[in-house]
Amino acid sequence: MRRINKYLWLIASAAFCSCQSYDADDHKFGNVVYLDVAETTDVQTATIKNTLDELDRTFSATLAYPSGGDVTVSIAVDPSLVDTYNARHNTSWPMLDAKYYSLSDERVTIPAGKTASDAVTLHLQELLGEGEDQTGALTLDATYLLPVTITNASVPTLDSSSTVWYVIKRSSNITTAAQLTDNWINFPTLDKDTEQAMALNNLTAVTYEALIYIDKFATSALN
């Protein structure tokens, strides 16, 4: 019973403390600003469908705790950080060309008493290029880097979360080929001299991909 009472006292104490005002003097460390998307990981992937011409990703500048005054934060795409990423991850991915992206804002404010700015939108655009032949489209299955970082702020930055690297890839299009309920797919018979088989001549490998959607999981009753 004594142990239970001790736990109840600890819970009540925690609840009481959480309701008290939290003045600036209570902070054990200085305030810092960071990008919310980099809080858990500074690498964000954006794999884009082949049929998608644009895509948005949002993030905010965030404080460790509310400030007594407005905090201004400058944000920018920094191509010089591509080498930092490649050296860290042993990759050789290039910087995404500037024509494929834009930032909705490069300077945001975190109002006094708040911990987050309005959302900033990273807009990926013109991914399909122009015209029927998709001139200038982002190359299929190639990987690009887009580093976004805090370049200046009226409070110190949290270095480990002040930069986010977006890993951009426009993937090969995958579509639903058939409804397989009470149905099947016939693939070309490669050892036959047919028009379908001839189309695959001189290929060293063929890959079939499918998206599988489960209608239901059937169960049988046990006797």
Rank of each mutant, 00 (worst) to 15 (best):
Leu200Ala: 03
Arg170Gly: 01
Pro79Ala: 13
Tyr101Leu: 11
Gln44Leu: 14
Val155Thr: 10
Leu10Asp: 04
Ile174Glu: 13
Val43Arg: 13
Asp182Cys: 00
Ser102Tyr: 05
Leu35His: 07
Phe217Lys: 01
Val82Arg: 15
Ile168Pro: 11
Asp118Phe: 02
Phe187His: 03
Tyr213Gln: 08
Leu190Phe: 00
Leu180Gln: 05
Arg107Cys: 14
Val43Asn: 05
Gln196Trp: 01
Ile11Asn: 07
Arg3Lys: 09
Asp133Tyr: 03
Pro79Leu: 13
Ser102Arg: 15
Ser80Lys: 15
Asn183Gly: 03
Pro156Gly: 02
Cys19Ala: 15
Asp26Ala: 11
Ser18Trp: 11
Met1Val: 15
Tyr34His: 08
Lys99Gln: 11
Ala153Ile: 08
Lys49Gly: 10
Thr62Phe: 03
Thr139Glu: 10
Thr157His: 01
Arg107Tyr: 01
His89Trp: 14
Ala218Gln: 04
His123Ser: 15
Pro156Tyr: 02
Leu124Phe: 14
Val155Leu: 05
Thr121Pro: 13
Ala119Ile: 00
Cys17Lys: 09
Asp36Leu: 09
Leu222Val: 05
Thr204Glu: 04
Arg2Thr: 09
Ala119Lys: 15
Ala221Phe: 05
Ala64Lys: 12
Tyr101Ile: 07
Asp83Thr: 15
Ala24Trp: 01
Leu180Ala: 06
Arg2Asn: 09
Pro188Leu: 04
Leu138Thr: 01
Leu211Trp: 00
Lys6Trp: 03
Leu96Ile: 12
Asp23Cys: 03
Leu200Gln: 03
Gln179Thr: 08
Leu122Lys: 08
Leu63Gln: 03
Gln134Asn: 05
Asp133Ala: 05
Arg107Thr: 12
Leu140Glu: 08
Asp141Asn: 15
Thr41Ala: 14
Asp97Ala: 15
Gln179Pro: 00
Tyr144Cys: 06
Tyr100Leu: 08
Leu52Pro: 00
Ile212Thr: 07
Val43Leu: 14
Val77Glu: 13
Gly131Pro: 02
Ala218Trp: 01
Met1His: 10
Ile212Ala: 02
Ile185Lys: 10
Thr157Tyr: 00
Gln134Trp: 00
Asp97His: 12
Leu138Phe: 03
Thr51Lys: 05
Trp93Cys: 07
Ala76Trp: 02
Asn223Lys: 11
Leu128Lys: 10
Asn183Ile: 04
Arg170Phe: 05
Thr151Asn: 02
Asp141His: 00
Ser162Cys: 14
Asn86Met: 11
Thr62Gly: 04
Tyr166His: 12
Ala178Tyr: 05
Ala76Val: 09
Lys169Trp: 00
Leu140Ser: 04
Trp184Ser: 15
Leu55Ala: 07
Ala210Tyr: 08
Tyr22Gly: 07
Ile174Trp: 01
Glu54Thr: 05
Thr62Pro: 02
Val33Ser: 08
Lys6Phe: 11
Trp93Asp: 11
Arg88Gly: 04
Val120Trp: 12
Ala153Trp: 13
Gly69Phe: 06
Asn173Ile: 10
Ile185Thr: 13
Glu54Trp: 12
Lys28Cys: 04
Thr47Leu: 12
Asn183Trp: 15
Ile168Met: 12
Arg57Val: 13
Leu124Lys: 07
Gln125Ser: 14
Lys28Gln: 04
Val108Leu: 13
Thr204Pro: 02
Trp165Cys: 05
Ala137Met: 09
Val43Lys: 11
Tyr65Cys: 06
Tyr100Thr: 12
Ala199Asn: 01
Ser102Cys: 08
